[in-house]
Amino acid sequence: MHELSIAIQIVEIVEEEAAKVEAESITRLELDIGLLSGVERDALEFAMEEAIRGSLLEKTQIVYNFIKAVMVCEECCNEFNTDDYFNSCPYCNSLKTIFIKGKELNIKSIEILKQ
């Protein structure tokens, strides 16, 4: 259950960034979360509800972009979608595949109000 520490990190980073531009409030927060990032979707959403309490993000609209995993084959450079770690390349059957999408844990953007 590391999702709460991740949620707390999100709130800290967003509050810092909002302070840098002297934002009065944060209206929207967009997160990119890879489906194989090691973060459980429901647990993160639940942890965020706790983490934003009493913060600048309490009334912020939070948009989660859950990103499907894409792998590329090291042998034949074929790209393919996957839901897990065990897919071999559908083109050449090699197991030498690496993730190019699906591992994201990023704060994409914030929408703020300022003077």
């Binding site: 991740i6 990190q9 999100i10 800290e12 980073i13 960034e17 531009v21 934002a23 009065e24 209206t27 929207r28 997160l31 844990l105 990023n106 704060i107 994409k108 953007s109 914030i110 929408e111 703020i112 109000l113 300022k114 003077q115």
Partner: peptide, 18 residues
């Protein structure tokens, strides 16, 4: 006085501090 809405692209890793 009106407040301006502004979108800031952060593209920052959540675990960037660690």
């Amino acid at each position: 006085g009106a407040l301006n809405s502004q979108t800031i692209q952060l593209q920052r890793k959540i675990l960037s501090k660690n």
